[in-house]
Computed example of a mutant assay.
Amino acid sequence: MAHTEPYRLHHSLGYQLSIAARMQERRLDDRLKPHGLTRTTWCILLAIGNEALSQPSDIADFVGIDRTATSRALRHMEQEGWIDRASGTEDKRTRRVSVTGEGRRLIKQCTPYARENAAVMSTALSDAEEAELKRLLGKLRETGDAPLATL
């Protein structure tokens, strides 16, 4: 079936999702930047410190970024003193990652910013609307044809 109507960018679901995500990302970036963090390093720090993930591949999958970007961020974070990386015991190629005291301090200091940022969007919706939006977004993620870590 051929569409005869012109494609309207501002009417598309993808565009609306992108704009909402960028607004949320920009607010958080602005709060994290003075602490030397980016959204990516923040998410990685949470994966290690709050979720107890220690393998770079697990961290990449959790955050939804590729392994190369994860490795680059981990090197930077180690240089900053936020994490430690050590070789595994059975396989020297395996790297185990752990959060340092400085990394824990950053998590504690920046968590209120993440909560405030989440609250901005939440206040625009009722509890039922927020639950429904999360359900629908989950449904959309399930339709994706590419693994999240490759996006």
Rank of each mutant, 00 (worst) to 15 (best):
H35A: 06
A114K: 07
L13V: 01
D127H: 11
L13G: 00
S71Y: 11
R22W: 08
P147W: 06
L133G: 04
Q16E: 01
R8P: 00
Q55I: 11
Y15F: 08
S126E: 10
T68G: 07
T123F: 09
Y113D: 09
H10Q: 09
A69P: 05
I83L: 07
F62G: 05
R39E: 11
I107A: 01
R31D: 10
R141H: 12
P6A: 04
V99L: 02
K92N: 10
A47S: 14
G81R: 06
H35W: 08
E78G: 12
L125N: 04
S57H: 10
L45R: 04
N117W: 04
M77L: 08
Q55S: 14
S57Q: 11
Q55F: 13
G14I: 00
R27C: 12
L37P: 01
E25A: 13
D61Q: 12
L37F: 02
A52G: 01
E80I: 02
G101Q: 02
V99D: 03
D61A: 14
R95S: 07
T70Y: 06
L106R: 02
P112I: 04
Y7G: 00
G64E: 07
I44P: 02
T38V: 08
A21S: 12
K33S: 12
Y15N: 03
K134E: 14
L74M: 09
R8W: 00
A149E: 09
S98M: 02
L28C: 07
R93H: 12
H76M: 14
R105M: 00
L125D: 03
R26L: 11
I83D: 02
A149R: 11
M77S: 02
S54Y: 08
R27E: 13
M121W: 06
L32T: 02
E129P: 04
H10L: 09
F62C: 13
S18V: 03
T100F: 03
D66K: 02
G64Q: 06
L137Y: 13
T38E: 07
L28W: 05
I44W: 05
G88D: 06
S12C: 01
H11E: 08
T38K: 03
R104Y: 00
E5Q: 10
A146L: 15
Q79W: 10
A21L: 11
E78D: 15
L136D: 09
K108E: 12
L137H: 12
R85F: 05
I59W: 04
C43D: 15
G14W: 00
G14N: 00
A20R: 10
P56L: 03
K108G: 06
A47F: 04
V120C: 11
N117S: 12
L9T: 00
D145Q: 14
G88E: 06
G49M: 03
D91Q: 10
G144L: 11
S126L: 09
P112Y: 04
W42F: 08
M23W: 11
L151D: 11
T143R: 10
W82A: 03
D127E: 14
G103D: 02
A20Q: 08
L136C: 09
I65C: 06
H11V: 00
A73S: 13
A146G: 01
N117G: 10
L137R: 13
E142D: 12
